[in-house]
Structure formats: C-alpha cells, structure tokens
C-alpha cells in the first residue's frame, strides 16, 4: 500500500516540479500562470499522499522527508513525468499523456475499497479533470494550428510515446492491490485511456507511433538519468542545510 501511494505521490511531485520549471519562462504570461497552477495542484496532491504515507508508516516522518530525503532509486514515479520539458510541445504531450491516464485512474480510484484513497481521488479528480481539459485543448490548437506547430507536436509525440506504455502496464504492486479492489485493474482501464488518447490525437490530426517499444521501470525505481538532476536541484537545500524550515 505504501509503495503504491508513493507511486502516485512521486508522479505528482516530479511532474509538478517539471511544470514549475516553466515559471517565468512560458511562451505567454497567461500560459506561465496556467502551467504553474497545474504544478501547484500536483504538488498539493503529492503532499496529501506523503502525509498519508507518513501516517501509515508511523515512523514520525513528515511529507518533506519523502520529498527531500529519498534517493533516486527510492522514487517510484513513471519515467514519463521525469522527462525534460523540451519545447512547449514536449511539455504539452507529456502532460496530455499523463492527464489522460491520471483522469481515468482517479475516476476509478473513487471506487477504491480503501476509504482514504477513495476520498483523496474524489477530491483530486476535480483538479485532474481540468488538467485534462486544458491539455486536450492545447493538443488541438498545436495540431491544428500552423505547419510549424503541427510538426513540433508530432515530433513530441514520436519522442515521448515510448513512455506511455508504462502507465497502463501494471507492476506487481498494482496487480496485488487490484486483486483486493484497492486500485483498478490497469489492463481494463487501458481501453478507456487509449480511447481518450486516440480521440484527441485524431482531432489534432496527429498520429501515435504504431507498435512502438515501450520503456518501463520507473514505477519500481529504475529511472532515466534525468531524475537525478531533478532531485539534485529539488533537494539541495535540505541536503545542504538539514532540517531547515521556512
């Protein structure tokens, strides 16, 4: 259970951190605020989840211990969310793939047999529903925009698609919890997620690579080299000045 909550929390934290990197750098001021708003939603979700983990573990830790004092191999986020921002199209495609998955996941989690998790999912689903709406509409805008925006969007899809499969392929933890009705069976959720992606991709006039080889491992702690750099930046202050508070 704890490992599963960490999977959810680390996805939210790392993607939130990536989006936060756009702060002050987005193509438009309005977009800057939109992206950081999503980042704040995700960071807030991560915080609730870490607090729950701390409660379950009962070791007297708090949310910061999980965010700042774990090493890369202890993080259980999917490989997708740690991928670099790249250009806006890359950030958007990463967000859209994640949102499509995250929306259906949380929708299903509202039926979880774990009462706390069901409550958390119901609350987060409102935020995630907006995230998916936002990223879906931007997919259409870029895909249907100019020749340049279309080419950039397609390139981003080609580059990032290899990380989409991990989200919908259950690991041992997810299989185990699904059998107890705590989390949904991802192989069943996969159909709905892929239908949503196909619908938006078709409307945006872009295509997903057919039969792409899918990367995996992030959920079990095997990460790309990017995560180490994220943690180096994110954790620096707590590592250099242990226990420092605002």
């Amino acid at each position: 259970m704890i490992k599963y909550l960490l999977q959810l929390a680390d996805n939210a934290l790392i993607l939130g951190h990536r989006l936060g990197e756009w702060c002050g750098h987005a193509p438009e001021m309005e977009l800057d605020i939109a992206l950081t708003n999503v980042a704040l939603d995700l960071t807030g979700q991560a915080r609730s989840l870490y607090q729950r983990v701390a409660e379950l573990e009962g070791l007297g830790k708090d949310e910061d211990d999980y965010a700042y004092l774990r090493d890369a191999w202890e993080f259980r986020n999917a490989l997708l969310v740690e991928q670099p921002n790249g250009d806006f199209a890359h950030t958007l495609v990463r967000q859209f793939i994640f949102d499509a998955y995250n929306y259906h996941l949380h929708h299903a989690l509202t039926q979880s047999k774990d009462e706390w998790l069901a409550g958390f999912a119901a609350k987060s689903l409102k935020e995630i529903t907006y995230h998916l709406r936002f990223s879906s509409e931007w997919m259409l805008r870029l895909g249907d925009g100019t020749e340049v925006s279309h080419a950039k969007l397609q390139a981003a899809i080609d580059n990032l698609w290899t990380y989409a499969g991990e989200l919908t392929t259950p690991n041992e933890i997810e299989k185990e919890l699904a059998s107890h009705g705590i989390c949904p069976d991802l192989s069943q959720l996969k159909t709905a997620i892929e239908a949503k992606m196909a619908e938006v991709l078709a409307a945006a006039n872009v295509t997903a690579p057919v039969g792409a080889w899918m990367q995996s491992g992030g959920k079990d702690g095997s990460h790309s080299e990017h995560l180490g750099f994220i943690l180096a930046e994110m954790q620096f202050l707590q590592r250099a000045y242990p226990g420092l508070e605002w």
Binding site: M29, E30, I33, A34, N37, Y130, R133, E137, R141
Partner: peptide, 19 residues
C-alpha cells in the same frame, strides 16, 4: 488578458482571475 480563442480566454481567466 491575451488568448487566441474564446476557450483559451475562459481557461486563462479561470487561472488568472478565479484562483
């Protein structure tokens, strides 16, 4: 605020003015 279309204007307004 600036936006390319009405939908984007609504979303930007949501983020800028109702947060």
């Amino acid at each position: 605020l600036h936006a390319t279309d009405a939908e984007m204007a609504l979303e930007n307004a949501r983020d800028l003015y109702t947060r």
